[in-house]
Every structure is written in C-alpha cells, then in structure tokens.
C-alpha cells in the first residue's frame, strides 16, 4: 500500500511539474521567443505593446485552451470508460464529437459564423447527442453494452448527415474543416471563457462524485445492493462526460484520442480508484495536449501543424495497440 501511495504521489508531482513546464514553454516559445524571466514584465507592459499583445491575446488563451481541453477530454474519457466498463470507450464513441461536428456544420450552413455561435452550436450538438443516447439507454435499462452500441450507431448517423451537408456545399466544408481537424490557433477569450467555466464546474462536481463512480464500476446489481440508484447516476456521469467533451470540442475542435490514451496511461500508475484517477487524468491530459500543441507549433515553424493531426498520428497507433492488447475491451466486460 505504501509503495502504491508513494508511486501515486510521485506520479502526481511529476504530472504537475510537467504541466507547469509545458505551460511556461508554451508561453515562451513560438515565432517570437520570450525568456521565462521576462514573462511578468511583458504582461505588465514593460517590454512593449506588441509583446504584451502576443502574450496576452495569443499565447495565454492558447495555453489555457490546451490545458482545459486536455483536462476535460481526459477526464471525460476516464468517466466514460468507468461508467461503460469498457476501456475502449471515449467521447468519440458515444457520438459526442460527431454531435459537436454536426452542430458546427449546421451553424455554418445557416450562415452564422461568429466564434461564439460556432462554440455554442458544437456544445449544443454534443449535449443533444448525449440526451438522445441517455434516452435510448434509459428505455433499454441503461445497459452499458447498449449505450456503446447506441453511441456507435448515432456516431455513424451524425457523421453521415454531416458529410451530406458538406458535400452539398463546399463552402461549408472549407469553413468547418479547421474545426474538424482540431487545434488552438484561433482560440479567443470569448470562446474560451464560457466553455472553460463549464469545464471547471463539471470537474469540480465530478471530483465530489468519486465514490459514486467507483460504486457504479462494481456492476449494476452490486451497486444497487449497497444503495446507489445506478441508472440515475449513470445518466449523471454520461451528462457530465458529455458536458466536458462538448465544452472542450466547442473551442478546440474535434481532438481525438486524448480521452482514450490518457486514462489508460494514468490507470497503469494509479490504479482504478476514481479519487486518484480523475485528478491525475486532468493533470496528465492537460499536460499532454499542451505538449502536443507546443510540438505542433514548433515542429515545422514557421508553419503550424494542426494539433489534431499530431494527436491522431500519436493516438492512432496507440488505439490499434489497445485493440490488440485488450481484444476489443472484452477483458473488462
């Protein structure tokens, strides 16, 4: 036990340190480099208005966006994997990403192009998707297999509608392509703040529900036997996971694989108890996405690789590895 606690503590320290280091580097590095020691002076306006503008209106929101999106998607993935008892579940599987994508496409098709409206449309699309899935799972007694299968089916339907709309109007395809690849290059405070507040609120609620999440993982009958109304809590967790993923997708676009890779990686070091898993997923997810964003920015500077592409390059092989390693999730059924 002591070894395990020590390992968790070390992992927590490493995660926080890594996150802080990447955050500082993210503020310092780019087309214009700032020495870390100069950051407070630049923010105070001592180093010129241009430097201050770059730091305050480009790098700072971008750093916060990467951290928040990473934390939200990783925790969302961890919650979905626990609730659905399948390590291969992620926000994309239950159709959250597809719902957000459709929201953006329809928003663009309606001619509403402001960043705030696009964010709202993405968020509404993901929440609506979860509402449909939840209703569907409720009517089938919220079986975990049914939820996943329902999510996969809905994912296909939403993607098909999305593709149909973009095929009919190529302008819409061009407008929504940035969103569908995913990235932080166009993040602004107006898109970040409402979604960020929602993410922080959802994380705070989830961190108070760690024991409930662990009890849900015991299985329906055992959980009911010790007094948890499982169906109701499963819906709460699905809604919170959707809220996190939808809010992240609303400003970051369709970032894949964070919700899959990070929880899996963290579980190896901390075990499955949510009180350790969720906070560490938030820290590691934030650090991972911030690191990928930094790498995507610097790898081919002055050109910028969309972070979604970089994450898919990393995430794709890992996903295939997980499929082979865990035989499609059956090991955990």
């Amino acid at each position: 036990m002591k070894n395990r606690n020590r390992r968790q503590f070390l992992f927590l320290c490493a995660g926080i340190s890594g996150c802080l280091a990447v955050s500082v580097l993210s503020l310092c590095l780019g087309n214009v480099h700032f020495p870390p020691a100069d950051l407070p002076g630049i923010l105070a306006g001592d180093k010129g208005a241009m430097s201050r503008s770059i730091l305050l209106y480009a790098r700072l929101p971008r750093m916060f966006a990467a951290l928040l999106a990473g934390a939200a998607l990783a925790v969302s993935g961890a919650v979905l994997q626990t609730v659905l008892a399948n390590r291969l579940a992620s926000p994309g599987i239950i159709g959250v990403n597809a719902g957000a994508g459709l929201g953006v496409t329809l928003c663009c098709a309606a001619g509403v192009l402001s960043g705030y409206a696009v964010s709202c449309a993405a968020f509404a699309g993901s929440l609506l998707t979860v509402a449909v899935i939840s209703l569907f799972s409720y009517r089938t007694s919220a079986s975990k297999t049914t939820v996943i299968l329902g999510g996969v089916a809905l994912n296909s339907i939403l993607n098909a509608i999305c593709e149909s709309v973009t095929v009919l109007d190529t302008d819409i395809a061009m407008l929504s392509i940035d969103f569908r690849v995913g990235g932080f290059s166009s993040v602004s405070y107006i898109r970040l703040i409402p979604a960020g507040l929602l993410i922080l609120a959802a994380l705070a609620v989830l961190f108070t529900l760690c024991n409930e999440l662990d009890v849900v993982a015991l299985g329906d009958e055992t959980a009911k036997g010790i007094g948890l109304p499982v169906g109701r809590y499963r819906l709460v967790f699905l809604a919170l996971a959707a809220l996190l993923a939808g809010a992240a997708v609303s400003f970051a676009g369709l970032l894949g694989f964070v919700g899959l890779i990070v929880p899996h990686f963290v579980r190896r070091y901390t075990g499955n108890e949510s009180r350790h898993l969720l906070p560490l997923c938030a820290i590691c997810g934030a650090g991972f996405v911030a690191f990928c964003d930094l790498a995507a920015r610097l790898a081919f500077a002055p050109y910028e690789l969309p972070v979604g592409i970089l994450m898919s390059v990393i995430g794709g092989p890992v996903f295939l590895f997980l499929l082979v390693r865990y035989k499609g999730g059956r090991r955990y059924d």
Partner: peptide
C-alpha cells in the same frame, strides 16, 4: 445486504471493496 449472482470483478483492492459496504 445483497450478494448478486453475477458479480463484476472490479479493479480495486479488497480493502476498498469492503469499505464500499459502508456506502
């Protein structure tokens, strides 16, 4: 207290499992 027939084998310690009896 109820011990169902088909129980999951959760990925938690036996101590934590027992503690959930206090839930």
């Amino acid at each position: 207290a109820y011990l169902p027939q088909g129980k999951n084998v959760p990925d938690i310690s036996a101590g934590r499992m027992t503690l959930h009896g206090r839930f």
